[in-house]
């Protein structure tokens, strides 16, 4: 009798606990915009940061040798490319001055390592090992040597969460490098991104390259996003259906750079985690990113000259 009533009590207690926690979860989901996510993430990152860092460190040890060989090969190729680009860069600078164009904003690059990816297949976000301590703030654009990765959506003291292109909430204003046709890059499931809001019969072809247009104020103009892989026109629709393959391979991504706008220096700086050891790098993002490879090459070139 006593055993049975105890069992019933526990059953009832569990049920009401479940109901209360479920309501709490639903409320969190509904009012997530009003929650102090930085505080919530701060707590969990304090607990999980050491574990994640250890796992990432161990994982990286196995990659160092392979990565070293890959990078040595890449540096050799890039060195040749740099010599060719140096002249073009000079010419570009002179021409800009001749045309009286306003000098473009310069940026700092904060190198960060990826320490985690949010679980689940859909709407992935990435956790990086740079936070408020390194000068990273919300809405800062994030790039890799191949092109645009996303933007920062949450920051804690040591870590930040970034919203990648493969997220339903990611909308990026883009422009076609060849025809200057504009649209919005979004992800709607599947392997490829979609370029939306492009009117029918616009001049967009397969293999065209898409860059950020600079509209919206988050992403600076001229960062490479991806290339067009599919163009569909239907007379029933008023817009074209365009498939985009991003330049960045998100499954192989290990390191990223957070872009922060420079206020005073005309140079682009790479800030190491210890900001006092900032490496000065002469890099104009808009002039050097003529293609995704150039971005990496300019970066490496400047690093090598240090």
């Amino acid at each position: 009798m006593l055993e049975s009533s105890k069992k019933n009590y526990l059953k009832n207690f569990n049920f009401w606990t479940f109901v209360i926690l479920l309501i709490l979860s639903i409320l969190s989901y509904t009012f997530k915009g009003n929650l102090r996510m930085d505080v919530v993430q701060g707590i969990s990152s304090i607990i999980l940061y050491p574990v994640e860092k250890t796992i990432t460190f161990t994982k990286n040890i196995f990659y160092v040798y392979r990565k070293n060989i890959e990078l040595s090969r890449e540096i050799a190729t890039i060195s040749l490319e740099i010599q060719r680009c140096a002249n073009i860069k000079k010419e570009n600078r002179i021409l800009r001055e001749l045309y009286g164009y306003k000098p473009m904003n310069d940026f700092y690059l904060i190198p960060c390592e990826i320490i985690g990816k949010s679980p689940g297949l859909h709407n992935r976000s990435i956790i990086i090992d740079g936070g408020l301590e390194d000068g990273i703030e919300k809405n800062m654009p994030v790039v890799s040597t191949r092109g645009l990765v996303g933007k920062i959506i949450e920051t804690t003291q040591k870590t930040s969460e970034l919203l990648t292109l493969y997220n339903r909430n990611s909308f990026i204003s883009a422009v076609d490098l060849r025809s200057r046709v504009q649209g919005i890059v979004n992800w709607q499931g599947g392997r490829f991104l979609i370029l939306e809001d492009v009117p029918l019969h616009s001049d967009i072809k397969v293999e065209d390259t898409l860059l950020t247009s600079g509209m919206g104020g988050v992403f600076p103009k001229g960062i490479f996003i991806g290339k067009v892989i599919k163009v569909e026109e239907s007379p029933k629709e008023i817009v074209m259906k365009i498939g985009i393959e991003p330049f960045v391979n998100f499954s192989l991504l290990e390191d990223v750079f957070v872009l922060t706008e420079s206020m005073t220096s005309p140079l682009m700086e790479i800030i190491t985690p210890d900001t006092s050891n900032a490496i000065m790098v002469q890099l104009d993002i808009f002039e050097t990113i003529k293609n995704p490879q150039n971005f990496g090459s300019s970066l490496l070139n400047n690093l090598m000259t240090q």
Binding site: F18, S25, S28, Y29, V40, P119, N167
Partner: peptide, 19 residues
């Protein structure tokens, strides 16, 4: 909860489903 702290855009969704 821990899972959702790493994907703030859908905070609460995994919390409810795992619960």
């Amino acid at each position: 909860f821990l899972c959702d702290t790493f994907n703030s855009t859908y905070f609460g969704l995994n919390m409810a489903l795992f619960l």
